[in-house]
């Protein structure tokens, strides 16, 4: 850290870097009082100051590297995790992306305010030639913040989707050669595929003659979902198992009719209990009433 006046021979990124390093302590103190750092580091102010120092240092590194507008600049790497933590903490407390972005924007203003003080008496222009690179640098910082937030969200979405797929479909053996699948949540193509495969595997495993598809937990049935259900029923039938769809709520029944969906020869029941009764009846009939030869 140099305490002397900025060398007139320095290019503006270097001058900016020198300025940031020189004023690191004051900047950190100012930032620590901003709502962003205050809200994130609630325990002690020292923590906020320390975090501010880290950010200032990495900005100085980026400036020294001369690539003010490069999102991939190596200088951002050390603070990326911290930026994620900070932006994550802010968005968790209910702030929108724009609000978080604005809070990070306030960091720049705090530094800009300091520029005339720093340059007073050394440079008659009051550090005007530093304003533009400074604005560029903080613009990049904001983009990095927004980018990390979006990336974070994307990862959450992916993780949840995977969890949803995994918890989708337990196939339950209800009785000897009787299996059931309680479906929960929206069915899309990927999920229905998993449901279908799991059910068919379970039919083989348990030698099931009857399978119950319970859609009590499915919020809406559109033509795509209906098509998936029909395919599952048809596949199960090809394998020698009868399928019944249960848990059709009145609203869903009306939707199905209004959409003009033809559930064809699929057996349907209102509740799982009704379906179970049907299934037991079906088994009884098979045993009681075979269609004899000749």
């Amino acid at each position: 850290m140099t305490d002397g006046p900025p060398d007139s021979g320095l290019s503006s990124p270097d001058a900016l870097s020198a300025f940031l390093r020189r004023r690191s302590e004051q900047i950190a103190q100012r930032w620590a009082d901003l709502p962003l750092f205050q809200a994130v580091f609630t325990v002690t102010r020292d923590e906020a100051v320390e975090a501010s120092h880290a950010v200032v240092a990495s900005l100085a590194d980026v400036a020294a590297g001369g690539r003010l507008d490069d999102l991939e600049a190596a200088g951002f790497l050390p603070v990326r995790r911290q930026l994620i933590a900070m932006s994550g903490s802010r968005s968790r407390s209910g702030l929108s992306l724009a609000q978080v972005d604005r809070e990070f924007g306030a960091l720049r203003d705090a530094v800009l305010d300091m520029l005339p003080l720093d340059q007073a008496g050394q440079d008659e222009r009051g550090g005007d030639d530093l304003r533009l690179p400074l604005a560029t640098l903080f613009g990049t910082l904001r983009v990095v913040v927004v980018e990390t937030m979006l990336q974070e969200n994307q990862e959450v979405v992916l993780r949840q989707r995977q969890q949803l797929l995994e918890m989708t479909t337990p196939v339950i053996k209800l009785w000897d050669r009787l299996v059931a699948v309680p479906l929960i949540g929206m069915l899309d193509s990927a999920r229905s595929q998993v449901v279908m495969e799991n059910l068919l595997e379970a039919i083989v495993e348990h030698n099931a003659t009857v399978a119950i598809l319970d859609i009590t937990g499915v919020p809406t049935v559109d033509s795509l979902v209906a098509q998936h259900l029909m395919k599952t029923v048809a596949s199960a039938r090809l394998m020698g198992a009868e399928c019944v769809i249960s848990g059709i709520r009145p609203a869903i029944a009306q939707t199905i009719v209004q959409l003009g969906l033809d559930l064809g020869h699929v057996t349907t029941r209102a509740t799982l209990a009704d379906a179970l009764e049907w299934a037991m009846d079906q088994r009884g009939r098979r045993d009681r009433d075979p269609r004899p030869l000749g």
């Binding site: 395919k231 596949s235 020698g240």
Partner: peptide, 18 residues
């Protein structure tokens, strides 16, 4: 028809051969 495998059943249904 007896003992169709799941993969076969899915393929036939996808082909529209129920």
């Amino acid at each position: 028809l007896v003992g169709m495998r799941p993969a076969v059943a899915i393929t036939l249904v996808e082909l529209g051969l129920t």
